[in-house]
Every structure is written in structure tokens, then in C-alpha cells.
Design a protein around this nucleic acid. Sequence first.
DNA 1: TCTTCGATTGTCT
DNA 2: GACAATCGAAGAA
Length: 201
Amino acid sequence: MQAKSILPHQFYEGEVVQVARQLLGKKLVRQTEFGRISGIISETEAYDGSQDLACHARAGRTPRTSVMFGPPGHAYVYFTYGMHWCFNVVTSPEGYAAAVLIRALLPLEGLDLIALRRAGIAQKHWVDGPAKLTRALSIEKLENGKDLTNRDGGLWIEDCLEVDPACVHTSPRVGIDGVPEPWRSMPWRFWIDTDSLQGYQ
DNA sequence: TCTTCGATTGTCT
DNA sequence: GACAATCGAAGAA
């Protein structure tokens, strides 16, 4: 687990479903004014362009979704349900609106900072949902559009673990019941057992 | 452990 | 004006 390096631009240029798989086991790092918070990415979902009716980009380019049409390796952060932020990574070449929603982490560093931001919540529920991890890592509107391939924005992703493909689970995406088939049933949600990762750091 | 339900506001039609 | 890529509290089992 030595020689950690920031994932380069090219990592994100590929097909979004592949990138969603490959992001599992990578380390999301957040540098705040109070210290560093990080965690292993343990759950993702792929949203694949304007033809994917579950993707925000289905309506074409709008002010909100414009980041998704931009270059890969940037953060797409959107606000939903009147109170929640969700964090995505833009993938595929510029002009193609695809992104990977980061749904869950295995906390590594900055546990005391997360505890402050998630006061009163059991540790196992600190970052086990898309809006929970943005709260824990202090990701919101300001982070929208940031470049994740360098440390300038205080937010980036590093290479970390090799994940055994046999340990990757798939299922349809969550929270898109109103979306027509085949999109509703596409098996584009990926996750790894966090139990199998205990012991790494 | 599981199910139900209210909260709350930006975005798009 | 309708709805949303959700969360967490509360109550039931």
C-alpha cells in the first residue's frame, strides 16, 4: 500500500461503468482547514450519458449538469431533497455526460473530524450513504467542478488497494424507481464488502 | 431489524 | 408547481 499516487486524468477517460468498478478500493482524500480526512471507496454507481434516463443529463445540458459535460476527473456535486449534497466523479471524454456517484466509504484518516461532523451518529453509519459522506467530508456546492487530479482543490483520489473482482457485488441503482426500463434495472451499482477490507490502511 | 414518513429547497417544465 | 441519484427519527414486529 506504499507509493500512493493521485489518479491521473486518463483514469477517468474510459467508459463510465468500467471506471465505477475501478474506483472501488481507491482512496478519496479531503484536505480541510482542520486536517485531512480520507476513506476507501466502497460503493459506486454509474450514470451513463444523455440516453441513460436515470442520469441527470437526460434533459441535456443545463446549468446544473454542465460539469458532467466537461472534462473527466472533475467533481460533480449536486443538491437534492432540499437538504442533501451528493458527490460524483465526471468520466468519459469531454462532451459526453457521464459520472460515477460515490455512495459509501470505509473511513481511514481524520476519524476525529468525521466524529465532529457526524456527532450523535453510530460510526457504522458515518459514511454509508451518498449524502452522509459529503457531510462527513465537508463536500458541498463549493466543491462542484473541482479538478480531482491534483491537490489544489483540497479534494482528490489516490491509488490504494487492489480489489479482487470476485469481491465486487453488483445490483440495480438505488432511488430511481420512477425511471423506465431498461435503465431502472441496469446493474450499475457496485460495492465491496467492507468486512473484507478491515485490516488495510 | 424492518417499515413508514416528514423534512426542505434548487432545478426544470 | 412538481419533484428529487436521501436521511434519520419513530414506531412496529
